[in-house]
């Protein structure tokens, strides 16, 4: 029915998520709450908010990806599904890719789709809204990929949460810089095509390479 293990993992993860619809909305709720904190912390002046909006919106996306990453493998590790995956001899590379894409569909994609609304809340000028959505859609692929690497390395550890942030946030620095930078350029009316292409290139690179690391890390975690 599902020929490749990639499709199987993807369908599985999506179906599992939609069995608990609240879980799908959690990243969006998180995003909304953090956006609410910004004017409370920085003051309500539109000029201040709009100046910091690109960076704030991107940092929040990083945190949303981080918080949701911890649970990527948790269930499958606890109930033995990962064990069965490893024993089956299926391609761990394709399975890992499935986990990355599933995580992106459940966090990055909805964030990107709703980001123009969040941008409005932080007085991001209209010129930046489209670029914000596109850059988030591409950049969160990288975030999901690194999130999966970190989650695969820490799933067997008792205190994985804080460790996970130390492992993956430094790796995500380029995405934050590019993402926030490209939105800022769009706001200032500068061309953004080349930077968007670089972001796209980074996400392809991450999609191609990180499954290798994720697969090996799953093997290690199952031995613990």
């Amino acid at each position: 029915m599902y020929r490749s293990v990639f499709g199987k993992v993807l369908v599985r993860q999506l179906l599992l998520a939609f069995r608990r619809p609240a879980a799908v909305l959690n990243p969006l709720f998180f995003y909304g709450v953090v956006v609410l904190l910004m004017p409370l912390g920085l003051g309500p002046q539109q000029s201040v908010l709009s100046q910091f909006a690109p960076g704030l919106l991107w940092i929040t996306a990083l945190l949303a990806g981080l918080l949701s990453a911890e649970t990527i493998f948790r269930g499958d590790y606890d109930d033995g599904a990962l064990e069965q995956l490893l024993v089956s001899g299926e391609s761990l590379y394709l399975a890992s890719l499935g986990y990355v894409v599933a995580h992106w569909c459940l966090t990055g994609l909805p964030l990107a789709l709703f980001s123009p609304a969040f941008g409005q809340l932080l007085s991001l000028p209209d010129e930046g809204l489209g670029t914000l959505a596109v850059s988030l859609a591409l950049g969160t692929l990288v975030l999901s990929a690194f999130g999966c690497v970190g989650a695969a390395l820490t799933m067997a550890l008792r205190r994985g949460g804080m460790l996970l942030s130390l492992l993956i946030l430094p790796l995500e620095v380029p995405v934050l810089i590019l993402g926030a930078g490209v939105v800022e350029r769009a706001v200032n009316g500068m061309p953004v095509d080349s930077l968007i292409s670089i972001l796209g290139g980074l996400s392809l690179l991450a999609l191609a390479l990180t499954p290798l690391a994720i697969g090996s890390s799953i093997k290690i975690s199952l031995e613990v």
């Binding site: 430094p170 790796l171 380029p174 810089i177 590019l178 930078g181 990180t210």
Partner: peptide, 20 residues
């Protein structure tokens, strides 16, 4: 594994920080 992931990423980090 982690340091290998970091190694691939370091040139990208340096380039992006320079640009930033």
């Amino acid at each position: 594994i982690l340091s290998l992931v970091g190694t691939v990423n370091i040139p990208i980090i340096y380039k992006s920080v320079d640009w930033w």
